[in-house]
């Protein structure tokens, strides 16, 4: 999987490394900004009310 991505990135090793870092950061950003906030209410530690709202 990661090997496949690496082979399909353009440029030499340095450019690919840089692109990889950018890709990783983009993934982390999407996770923190959209995926985790969505997933969080599905987990139990945020139910602090007594009427289940």
């Amino acid at each position: 999987m990661y090997g496949w991505i690496w082979r399909h990135l353009p440029g030499n090793a340095w450019v690919r490394a840089l692109l990889s870092i950018v890709l990783v950061l983009a993934v982390v950003y999407v996770l923190f900004q959209y995926v985790f906030p969505w997933a969080e209410p599905l987990l139990p530690f945020n139910d602090v009310t007594v009427d289940g709202q």
């Binding site: 139990p44 530690f45 945020n46 139910d47 602090v48 009310t49 007594v50």
Partner: peptide, 15 residues
């Protein structure tokens, strides 16, 4: 005031 109990759980509430 209400919050959850245990600290990381949601089985109960503290009032």
């Amino acid at each position: 005031l209400t919050t959850c109990d245990p600290e990381w759980g949601s089985s109960h509430r503290l009032i």
